[in-house]
Design a protein around this nucleic acid. Structure first.
Ligand code: SF4
Ligand code: SF4
Lengths: 137, 137
DNA sequence: TTAAAATACTACTTAATGGTAGTATTTGCA
DNA sequence: TGCAAATACTACCATTAAGTAGTATTTTAA
């Protein structure tokens, strides 16, 4: 399993924010703590604010903050915001016109794993993650 | 979950071969049946023969055949042959220097899913796949 | 021994992702 | 009002993955 860098960064940034639980985060702050370049982080934050996962405020004393409770933000929401989950749920062989009714030889083997993956992403919230007693990020 | 096109193609080609169970397959034959371009398929087949999953024979009446029993070829072998499994087993956040002893906030959530994924890939053989009664490929 | 039919090799092109630079805009306070 | 400190936008550059073209090599049967 491999997410794109873009999704990796988005999850890192938001899970850091959820854990710290500040009122407001500046890009500068986030850049210092997480290993993401200035411009790339800002581009991402703009994306995330466009789908209303976070709010951004320009100007002096501006920055980013969550626009809803972290209990209501799921990993799948984050991935969807920056690149879409669809590509991770398709056929393992790269076809795009099959259904469960007409399975090929790989299908049965793949489906169970995929379900598990989807379940993890769509049921784990940022809040849950931020509650773990961890040492990194 | 998304494999690279390269892995997708490799799995498609080999699972087709396992199902048909011919002595020998020519590139031409495979290209006609599977939607992979001539040159790309040949490049892949050369890769697969270099790691001894298949044998290739040049010259008139040449072609490709399995070099071992399809019961002994696992999905993970195929992925390893063409691009490596490693990238699919790393950290979901893109870090590369963590261990299970010092988990970050995402770790616990991710590990179980990853185990399942790895298990599926490393325990499913081409033979198993070719035995399924399927309609595609 | 030569021609046909197959794979192998080398080098290039295209598309997608990841990353950077520079400028514009917004905001609030001295 | 004007400056400082923040984010937003536009346009470009770099790297990697995917795909293509053309030539070389191998094999064997006529
Ligand atoms: S039936 Fe096979 S080809 Fe179709 S979606 Fe399932 S795994 Fe993919
Ligand atoms: S602890 Fe966190 S950062 Fe480290 S490998 Fe696990 S998920 Fe990745």
């Amino acid at each position: 399993m491999k997410l794109s860098k873009t999704s990796e960064y988005a999850i890192r940034i938001l899970s850091y924010m959820a854990k710290e639980n500040n009122e407001l985060f500046s890009a500068k702050q986030l850049i210092e703590k997480l290993g993401v370049s200035d411009k790339y982080l800002r581009k991402l934050m703009t994306l995330l604010s466009k789908v209303q996962l976070i709010n951004s405020k320009q100007g002096r004393y501006g920055g980013y903050c969550f626009s809803k409770n972290t209990k209501d933000i799921y990993i799948s929401d984050i991935i969807n915001a920056v690149e879409g989950m669809d590509k991770y749920l398709g056929c393992i062989l790269g076809f795009d016109d099959c259904s469960d009714e007409n399975p090929c030889s790989m299908h049965e083997v793949w489906v169970e794993t995929r379900e598990k993956l989807l379940k993890t992403f769509s049921e784990t919230s940022l809040y849950e993650i931020s509650q773990k007693n961890s040492l990194k990020i």
